[in-house]
Computed example of a mutant assay.
Amino acid sequence: MNNKKRILVLSSLDHSLINFRGDFIKSLVKEGYKVYAGAPEFGEQKLKELKALGAIPVSYYLQRTGLNPFNDLKTIFNLKKIIKENNIDLVYSYTVKPVIYGSIAANMNKTPVVSLITGLGFAFTGLTFKARTLQRLNEFLYKLSIRKNKTIIFQNSDDYQLFLDRKIISKHQKVGFVGGSGVNLEQFKTRVNENSTDVISFIIVSRLIKEKGIELYLNAAQTLKVKYPKAEFHVIGAPENSPSAVDSKKLNMLNDDGTIVYHGPQNNIPQHLYKRDIFVLPTYYREGVPRSILEALSVGLPVITTNTPGCKETVINKKNGFLIEPQNLDKLIEAMEYFLINKESIKEMGINSRNYAKEKFDVNIINKNLLKMINNILNPTTAH
């Protein structure tokens, strides 16, 4: 049994390994790989869950926010040691810091790397001086780290084009494409789409930062609640410390006066989605393919999101929802009001969402593609 090939799946958060890569880890284990799951620290519950999937949790040093050359070097050498000591055959890394530092560490050990670009985040919005400075730095670090990687996987073609345009990678580099982390269609079953009441309810599930469009959603709710007092505007997300975080006092105030229903962070997202009618994410953050939208599609909700990289892949405009221009409050209000006026289209667009999730974002299809890419590297003679 010791001749199993060993894969290190590298993340920046323990819960992400379960929530976003749990099905993928299961697929790797089933395929006969020995899977190590790397994160900076593990809660007891997540340790149990990862072990139940058949993975071996490995903690490594990482300062998740900010940049400090000494801390970053410490991360690289810590990862290099982990890769060497566990005889890792391939590193599969995702999100910015694990991709950059995991790639450098693996390259130092001459260990193959497959890295997944899960969206470029705040740094690539170009909206502020800080964002532009971070973008230049991230471009430099990506160039330094991923050029020797066996495969770089993108979640949308816009990110790939940007990496080419910025000369972060060359057009000869081996790349792959997947529709986000995928969605488990069994876990997010289609809802019984029969709203017999005259209450139309909207929901946003997101990090509560301005770039995700939460302020726009709150402003739209304030406008629409006056005209449609029965409409409901639900918000799920944890308060954040980020400079662009939405003021929790504002959330609580709008909740108390009945404009919104603020649930805070929640673990049972499917149960909340089943009870709502329309999913909204007016983000202008540089997304990969937002997992929250995939979950809403799978449940069978129409989706209102922005015509931006990663989001525009999830909606066929006017078929399963609406694509609006980012940071445009009037267009957001118009799209939301459409469903308040045309209640009958909620069911039809919701069915189209579920069908689109089945066709394009089923986690089994996505994991099959990922496994094929990994098998081609580790078992080229038997790859299927």
Rank of each mutant, 00 (worst) to 15 (best):
G102R: 09
K80G: 04
M336R: 12
N71P: 01
G258D: 12
N19F: 08
V96N: 03
G288T: 14
F140D: 07
K227G: 00
T75R: 11
D158G: 01
I236N: 03
E85N: 14
P69F: 03
E49Y: 02
K130V: 14
S145E: 12
I169E: 07
R136F: 10
K46F: 00
N364Q: 14
K212I: 11
I374D: 07
F322C: 09
R21T: 05
Q155H: 05
G288W: 12
L162R: 13
V205S: 04
I153H: 02
D159V: 01
T381M: 04
L218V: 07
T381S: 10
S157I: 12
D330A: 12
Q155C: 02
G43L: 02
I333V: 15
K358L: 11
P282G: 05
S115P: 01
K130P: 02
V175W: 03
S115Q: 11
S206N: 09
K230M: 00
N138K: 08
N268K: 09
Y101R: 09
G66E: 07
F129T: 15
V363F: 04
N379Q: 10
K212E: 11
V178L: 14
Y228L: 03
N19D: 10
D72C: 07
E287V: 10
I346L: 01
E41G: 05
I214E: 06
H263K: 06
I153G: 02
S181H: 04
P57S: 08
Y228C: 02
I366H: 10
N109L: 08
G237C: 06
D159W: 03
S206I: 06
V261N: 12
E344V: 03
P265S: 11
Q63G: 01
S93D: 12
N307A: 11
N364E: 15
K5C: 01
I88Y: 04
S298Y: 04
S170D: 13
N241W: 00
F177E: 13
V226R: 13
L323N: 10
N107L: 00
M336A: 01
K343Q: 12
I200P: 00
I18N: 06
F77C: 01
L281M: 14
K110E: 13
